[in-house]
Amino acid sequence: MRGDAASMTLLRAKSAADALRLRARNPAALPLAGGTDLMVHWNAGLLNGRTVLDISAVKDWRRIKVGKDGAEVGALATHAALLRQPAVVAGWPLLTAACGLVGGPQIQARGTLGGNIANASPAGDTFPPLAVYEARVRVASSAGSRELAFSEVFTGVKKTSLKPDELIESIYLPRPAKPARQLFRKVGTRAAQAISKTMAAGLLWLDKKGAVGELRFALGSMAPTVRRLRKAEQAVRGRKLDRETIDLAVKLLASDVSPIDDIRSTRLYRLRAAENIFRGFLEGRLEGV
């Protein structure tokens, strides 16, 4: 443990208003929710001397409300809390599957959906599901609040489009129509407590003739930010998933991602595994969570 508690300044917010006020006054402060990422860096001695704004006590941001059209998940809802809500598991199974693969039970009990998003890791486990559910992220500052499409949140590795005085308040999950096919797959360094090498989430709707009504497919750990396969999604729209269409879609995958070699995996492996998963999904061989 190389963190030095005495060097730290801890600000503790008691309410949402309090949190936003403290945020406005201390734009350099690091927001702290579950601490599952921040404290790892602190333990390594990388955050000594910093000011931390603890928002974990803000009850309003912990709520999970499930309605007919969608669910509103407070930014501070933990992965474990989402897994405990049968209505969320039933409505957004790809998301809860991802929540169940974040770290181990201890990390799931502490890590929050909002913290996960704010942290903006390229390997964020919940991001591919949030991308295909087309979640909307509500961010607030003392001046008011605004809503961002999930696709607008990330600007790079560990970077978001949030302004320095903003905090994530909640995540809205629109309720999807029942898909014909859905998939979540995490390919990690081992069976549990793994960092992902590649990750996929997919939703597919077919029209009455059996052609593709809509395809949404997202990959994680394949680019600085989570990526929707926009080109492939567009290319298959309205077409039957025959050999030719599938080949085309799989070929287009690479143009929407930019995987790299690092200590966890290789560019080629990531690409090939993602292509295989995508092909398996389109061919109907790989589905489920």
Partner: peptide, 15 residues
């Protein structure tokens, strides 16, 4: 903590 398992190395006591 309140019945849930957590890693105590990742939690400032102030929380």
């Amino acid at each position: 903590i309140d019945g849930e398992p957590v890693n105590s190395c990742l939690i400032p006591v102030g929380q």
